[in-house]
Nucleic acid binder design. Structure first.
Lengths: 127, 127
DNA sequence: CTAAGTGTATTGGTCTGCCCATACAATACT
DNA sequence: AGTATTGTATGGGCAGACCAATACACTTAG
């Protein structure tokens, strides 16, 4: 789960780290209260600067996934189902809004996007 | 149509310019063969460097919306309905794929995205 | 109390995207 | 031809994102 990163990827290192942990928490692989590797440990393991790990942890903290306690460590947070699901919906809304904004800039309308979404997801969208 | 730009926007100036023209072409306000303002004219009008306008025009050229002819000017291209619509579908697919990739990185699944899309568009998505 | 381990803060280097400035090359009009 | 008007090409400055380096402050174990 904390394998080496892809330094050639356009995705920033701190983001790769954050994503891995985020999905692990979302998938239940990391339960509430679990201690994450220390900043230095993980940095050494990933061949990365500690500050980069910190950036990842801070992002996760801002999202409410973990809590950093100085001198103690970084721990997975308890997130209630209700809060979590509303948070996910919020993120989804943000992503969709961004995409719709992009689409508008390109002169695409909603139907074309909805069509593409349904195709990509293999979900019935218009019915 | 060539009003002043929003220099405080996070959207690059060249992109704002390109978008305006792109949507004007898509909406049929600018017909095939129409001459666009010269690089310098538009630059002066928008209080912007000519090179910035060039960047916008080159982007539109790459997308097949306009043709630049040295010494003559920049003109709106003829784009067949079939080619245009397939091009639009392609763009829509690209946008959706990008968003889905982002969603995956955040641990969101397709249903959540589809749900958000339907809400934002006010379109029936699941039915 | 001390030492080892933890997160925190500040700073600087590197790279990329954006915009500008200037000189160049081709076309069109007279 | 000549001149004005057009796009073209190259290089520079600036800001922001990303990552690293180093010194600091707090907590815990012994």
């Amino acid at each position: 789960m904390f394998n080496k990163l892809d330094s050639r990827s356009p995705i920033p290192l701190y983001d790769q780290i954050a994503t891995r942990i985020r999905v692990a928490v979302a998938a239940g692989e990391l339960r509430s209260g679990t201690a994450l590797p220390s900043v230095r440990q993980l940095a050494t393991r990933l061949r990365v600067n500690p500050a980069t790990v910190v950036q990842a942890y801070r992002e996760l903290e801002a999202e409410g996934f973990v809590a950093m306690r100085q001198g103690a460590g970084t721990f997975v947070c308890e997130v209630g189902m209700a809060k979590r699901s509303s948070e996910r919906a919020k993120q989804a809304r943000r992503l969709v809004r961004n995409m719709l904004g992009e689409a508008a800039r390109l002169g695409l309308d909603g139907d074309e996007i909805a069509e593409a979404v349904s195709r990509e997801l293999g979900v019935k969208t218009h019915e």
